[in-house]
Amino acid sequence: MKVSKKVSGVEYAIRDIVSAAKDLEKQGRTIDYLNIGDPAQYGFHPPENVKQAFIDAIKKDQNYYSASEGIQELRSAIAKKENLKGFSIGADDVLVTNGVSEGLDMVMSSIVEEGDEVLLPGPYYPPYASYIRLHGGIPIEFSVDLEHSTPDIADIKSKITPKTVAICLISPNNPTGAVFEEDSLKKLIDVANENNLYIICDEIYDQIVFDKKFVGIGKVAGDSPVIILNGFSKVHLMSGWRIGYIAFNSSPQLASIREHLPKLARVRISTNHPVQYAALESLRGPQEYISEFVSELKKHRDLVVKRLNSMPGISCSNPKGAFYVFPKIENNPFKSDKEFVLNLLKSKGVLAVHGSGFGTKYGSGYFRLVFLPNMEKLNSALDKIEDFVSSYKP
């Protein structure tokens, strides 16, 4: 039977690689999963007041369809949060989604037509390329200096064509942990404005930064056509509850998409209603749990980077945010980074993600590790990785 050719371009290496681990588990092997950036799977959970808000909403029978754009109180709270980062928006500029992934799909389906090009930071989070391809577009990677967390502006300019419709940013970045600073964001805004392009900025890790205060794109956006993607899975530890949002900057250039994109929200009816009250509580309630979470993650980051850089044949830049490291495989004895990852899995039972799954141009030759597990588990997994890279002959 016929299958749409568009589906063939859909990939998600982070979950696709899991099947190999599950096969080993069926043989009785124990696997260290360092592949998925899900805080809740590693013991980081929403605080009790947030859980209770979810429960209370259910008990109050708030189990019906919400407004397609999301409940007004949550949209107002989200606008307030984004305004603290530099925007000047209201509840009507926010649309609540079933996670960032749905928001990304809505945005791409609203701006991408057959043959259109979208610029992505290389390496990039896989769903960006998949949704671009699904809607007939072509993802184009641009270079980022991982050591200094700076986008290559000259490279971006060289890759803009008449078919380019948008520049995507992910800051802090998945998979690299790069965090763009104010000067870089301003330059990107200028390039987008000069070429009449959308700026789509994913800031879902906005409070998970380790060395400097995070600067959101709202601080330099002015009235540029900036669309924010954000959510509650990472900072607010609500990954399995699937809630995110789109926020539109106050820009006259966004008038058309603001009119038409909400039609997609109506077609899919609404976001999970009771969880919106949990998200509201996570914004209004005590925030200490976030700083505690980030403080703990910084210890994990420091440990992992130090240990990886001490291993033969491995070099690792220092991530400025999120909870991933993206080490480079020096003198890889295997045919590819994916073969490296699969051999590490088979030999030591440690599941990482191959770097080429985040874009072949800038991701090949690397692999991604999540540093969310506790220190004991991290050290154990790192011992196995060290043993693995010390045993093969480059």
Rank of each mutant, 00 (worst) to 15 (best):
158 S>F: 07
191 V>F: 08
131 Y>N: 13
164 T>R: 03
113 E>F: 08
161 T>S: 13
197 L>F: 06
147 E>F: 10
208 I>F: 06
167 I>R: 01
147 E>L: 12
171 S>F: 13
177 G>V: 04
115 G>R: 04
187 K>C: 08
197 L>D: 03
161 T>V: 11
131 Y>P: 00
135 H>L: 06
155 D>P: 06
119 L>N: 04
135 H>F: 13
199 I>Y: 02
200 I>Q: 01
195 N>V: 09
174 N>C: 13
184 S>Q: 02
138 I>P: 06
205 Y>H: 13
203 E>H: 07
188 L>I: 15
169 L>Y: 07
144 V>W: 01
140 I>A: 04
196 N>H: 15
200 I>K: 00
202 D>Y: 14
164 T>L: 06
165 V>H: 00
144 V>A: 03
171 S>W: 07
140 I>L: 05
139 P>C: 11
142 F>T: 00
187 K>P: 03
181 E>D: 12
161 T>H: 06
100 V>A: 15
118 V>M: 04
113 E>I: 07
127 P>M: 13
207 Q>Y: 14
122 G>E: 03
201 C>F: 10
98 N>S: 15
119 L>E: 04
159 K>S: 06
131 Y>R: 15
124 Y>W: 10
206 D>W: 14
207 Q>H: 13
181 E>P: 05
125 Y>I: 05
192 A>Y: 02
137 G>P: 01
136 G>T: 04
172 P>G: 06
125 Y>C: 08
154 A>D: 15
184 S>I: 02
147 E>N: 14
200 I>V: 15
102 E>Q: 14
202 D>I: 03
106 M>I: 11
198 Y>P: 01
105 D>T: 12
200 I>T: 03
97 T>I: 09
117 E>N: 06
145 D>A: 11
111 I>S: 00
207 Q>T: 12
171 S>K: 05
115 G>S: 06
191 V>W: 10
95 L>Q: 04
132 I>Q: 00
205 Y>F: 15
145 D>L: 10
203 E>Q: 14
100 V>E: 15
100 V>L: 14
180 F>V: 01
201 C>N: 14
114 E>A: 14
131 Y>V: 10
162 P>S: 11
132 I>S: 02
146 L>F: 08
126 P>E: 12
207 Q>M: 14
156 I>T: 01
157 K>V: 06
187 K>M: 12
140 I>N: 01
115 G>Y: 09
210 F>Q: 00
157 K>W: 02
173 N>K: 08
206 D>I: 12
185 L>V: 08
147 E>S: 13
170 I>K: 04
98 N>G: 14
166 A>G: 03
187 K>L: 12
130 S>D: 03
